[in-house]
Design a protein around this nucleic acid. Structure first.
Lengths: 224, 224
DNA sequence: ATCTGGCTGTAAGTAATCTGTAAGTCAGCC
DNA sequence: GGCTGACTTACAGATTACTTACAGCCAGAT
């Protein structure tokens, strides 16, 4: 875990670095906003600890620039000023948390842990096969980044084939993955859907191959 | 945005519900941990406001169970107790923020905004999508800088869709983010509001796409 | 109290899309 | 050729979304 500390007070900064290193964080300490911003742009940090009253580039501007650069890194603001308006402003600018000096170290580390934990708890569910991309959570498909318009059934079928990429899936298996237990559709329905999918996958290096008598298999076309 | 409030103090609870509803949040209030946990397990809240000293199931246990259930919903802890150890313990159990009673309402709402924003976008209280701008704090919308006249419900819907820009939001999710527990509106109401919003967004490069069978998604029109 | 106007949700009709079947055609294989 | 399984097209019923009209409600004004 790497932390960017931007704090002009030498005494506090020194103490913080020592404590954080002690808590097994990697810390980069800068004494003004300009240098800190440069660092933030060069290096990916897991967290930013930011003093609001900085020389050259104040805390609010710092957060704003960071967010303008679409950096979602969590920011904890440190301030001697307990003016509620400052705090509200810091939050609205994009800060994630704040601490009023003087603060206790365990509280700081607890808040750092809370912030870092939060960032690391979200994950996506995307499948990429050649030029084809699936987002199974959003239930959307893309070819070379362009959105593909699919009906629910079409997506489900594509999803099943993608998950078993390179393996044969029988029609019966496809029927089961599409339908509820009580429903009963003919194998012809699958053939129809495969046909519809193939049309839509025409501009893409992914194809649905038929294995006669067995089922279907998704393949990636090696160019040539 | 839907908030779960777990607070046994009737006076404070009542005041909070009123203030939060006033700030256009949908609020469900429970007076003890058990009922609150039951509600939380339905998994539909954007935020939990939690009193630490609760009957039947105290605040720490509450958070722990919530996290054991893998619920990443942000939790703001309310406590009369400013014992730092309690605060640290709350953070370590999985709380995201805390407020010591008595607190100022603007600070609470600022922190709520910060938490909700963080989970959904990580960015500031102003959202810009193409020619559309939202100020979630002032609850105003602009197209190319010109103010858009929206009803509260319309704004809430637009906000939810904007925060989840590029992602599909189901009708049920939209209903839940708009309505209180006891209320119950049909999915058709959502369709009607989407229709109204689309009309008002006509002169703007932002559209609300329907994903049949799933829900709605906000998109930005790339001209051409 | 009464009126007014905006907001909210329902109802009902219309439009669009999806879905599975049927029926015909095609391709491979004996 | 004749058989089988796969491909293709067209279609009708079902599902889902869109649109419009309207009635109840509330807040503010008269």
């Amino acid at each position: 875990m790497r932390i960017l500390l931007v704090e002009d007070d030498v005494v506090l900064g020194d103490a913080l670095v020592q404590s954080l290193v002690n808590a097994t964080y990697a810390v980069d300490w800068f004494r003004n906003g300009k240098e800190g911003m440069l660092a933030a742009q060069m290096q990916i940090y897991d967290l930013v600890l930011l003093d609001l009253g900085l020389p050259f580039l104040n805390g609010f501007e710092f957060i704003q620039r960071l967010r303008n650069g679409k950096q979602p890194v969590p920011v904890i603001v440190l301030t001697a000023n307990d003016n509620p308006e400052d705090i509200v402003r810091a939050f609205d600018t994009g800060a994630d948390d704040y601490l009023i000096k003087p603060f206790r170290l365990p509280e700081l580390t607890a808040r750092i842990r809370a912030q870092i934990r939060r960032v690391h708890t979200h994950f996506s569910s995307k499948i990429a096969i050649g030029e084809l991309e699936l987002d199974t959570k959003e239930r959307m498909a893309f070819i070379k980044g362009e959105k593909l318009s699919l009906s629910p059934r079409e997506f489900s079928l594509l999803e099943t084939l993608s998950i078993k990429f390179g393996k044969v899936v029988t029609k019966d298996a496809l029927i089961e993955s599409l339908c509820n237990w009580d429903q009963d559709i003919g194998t012809n329905a699958i053939e129809v859907y495969v046909h519809r999918l193939r049309k839509k996958l025409a501009d893409c290096n992914v194809t649905i191959a038929n294995i006669r008598g067995l089922g279907y298999m998704m393949e990636q076309q090696t160019h040539g």
